[in-house]
Simulated scan of single mutants.
Amino acid sequence: MGQAKKRGSREQRIADALGLNQRTLVDIKKEYGLPATAEFLGYGVHLPVPDEFLAMFEDTAVATKKAWCKNPQAALTMDSFADAYETSRKCRDSTVVGIFDLGDQIYVAQIGGEK
């Protein structure tokens, strides 16, 4: 267990393996021009085509169940990038996004993959 601690957190190890730079929520807000007051709702899984968000995900030994929605407000959100990434790996052609509440609208920021 000591070796894992030396390599960093699970999220850091995943980011390093993917070649992603660790970015804070403040960095992401600045990158996308979001106000500092934007509330981070969580990480989600997004299918760029047909522009849908993962709303339900259940993975058991018997079956994997997924439901998709068009509205990011109804998306399944996760507190951890690592959890969102692991879920995204089980959803072909999906990416990880950050979902922010700006008060009058919901903003979706590309976190994993291209902007």
Rank of each mutant, 00 (worst) to 15 (best):
T60A: 14
T60L: 12
A61L: 11
V62P: 01
V62N: 11
A63H: 14
A63N: 13
T64M: 14
T64H: 10
K65E: 13
K65D: 12
K65Y: 13
K66D: 05
K66A: 10
A67P: 02
W68C: 02
W68H: 03
C69N: 14
C69P: 05
C69Y: 07
K70M: 03
P72T: 06
P72R: 04
Q73T: 11
A74W: 06
A75F: 09
A75T: 06
A75R: 06
T77F: 04
M78Q: 11
M78I: 13
D79Y: 05
S80Q: 15
F81Y: 14
F81P: 00
F81W: 10
F81T: 00
A82E: 14
D83N: 14
A84H: 02
A84G: 05
A84R: 00
A84P: 03
A84L: 03
A84Y: 00
Y85I: 00
Y85P: 02
E86D: 10
E86G: 00
E86M: 09
T87P: 01
T87H: 01
T87F: 07
S88E: 08
S88K: 09
S88P: 08
S88G: 11
S88I: 02
R89D: 09
R89E: 15
R89P: 04
K90S: 12
K90D: 10
C91V: 07
C91Y: 02
C91T: 09
C91E: 01
R92S: 04
R92E: 05
D93I: 06
S94Y: 02
V96W: 04
V96Y: 06
V96N: 09
V97C: 01
V97D: 01
V97W: 00
V97K: 00
V97I: 08
V97N: 00
V97G: 02
I99W: 08
F100S: 04
D101Y: 07
D101K: 08
D101E: 06
D101L: 09
D101I: 06
L102M: 08
G103M: 12
G103R: 00
G103P: 13
G103W: 12
D104A: 10
Q105C: 12
Q105H: 09
I106V: 15
I106N: 02
I106W: 00
V108K: 01
V108W: 01
Q110P: 08
I111A: 05
I111S: 03
I111M: 11
G112R: 08
G112H: 12
G113L: 13
E114K: 13
E114S: 11
